[in-house]
Amino acid sequence: MRIFLAILTYFSYIFIIAMYTIKAAKYLKLPVHLRWELYPVMHEENYQYGGSYFEQVDWWTRIRQKRYLRGFLFLLKEYFVLGEYFQKHKAYWYFLYPWHIGFILIITFHILCFFGAVAMVFGITISSSSQSITGIVFYYAILFTGVVSFVTGAFGSVGLLIKRIYDENLKQYATPLHYFTYIFTFLIFISGFYAWYFIDPTLSEYREFWKGLITFKFIDVGCGAATHIILFNLFLVYLPYTRSMHYITRFFGFCLIRWDDEPNMRGGKLERKLQALLNQKVSWSAAHIKSGKTWGEQVEEPKMRS
């Protein structure tokens, strides 16, 4: 059991990182596209009302200040607020928000467990009465993130399940996988909650388990913790097959599509990329397209009168 748990954990983490990396690389390797931005563009000077550099006469002669940080912070903030849902669909937000907070905190919880384990290797005791401040901070941070994630996540899972079943708009587009996901996440959060509340109120078992993982001295954990660990690991393996990548692709989508207002300048890097793309052969078969010719060859010779 010990070995099994450890191997499963290693595998799940490696698996999800590899899968996400492959997916992200695939996304990023897609060719540059035509501009299709939507305003407001956050890095623009007049982002408050959605203004762009096109509002200036001879815009190409002006030096632009792009505030990438503003866009980055906006996206980051939204992770913790989900403001669009709060404004437009509150009844949904009440469940969606705790569900997402559950995810954010459970991930934070695992990261803290990892670093806590590192601290333990260096001889720091993690407990409420630890000699070291670090130990105390780790203790409460792990406890807090874990417990809050279990509670909010479980609440959100049930809420969303009910919402998907009873909200006419959501129901029409719901799939068996949606329901499965909610039930699955509920089990993960509730198993964590169970293990903490009934078996291991200080979560010391988790910390020991993680210490075992990084020192390769695997330990046995109780049934409650083991169930939670297995479920969470399976969830990590399941995640790449869902739309969960949206956590990452949301960043890509905003930066590479919605806010991509980069003008093409003569002799620039972008122009070289575009020229290569225009040299690809097309195979569309409508009569007005020259199939087998490149994009660049589609245009008839200019017939200027003068």
């Binding site: 669009e84 669909h89 969606l96 990548m245 890509f252 599509i257």
Partner: peptide, 11 residues
């Protein structure tokens, strides 16, 4: 992006 990452939240 639009084909793969819609979560059908209908917002």
């Amino acid at each position: 992006h639009s084909l793969e990452y819609c979560v059908k939240c209908q917002i």
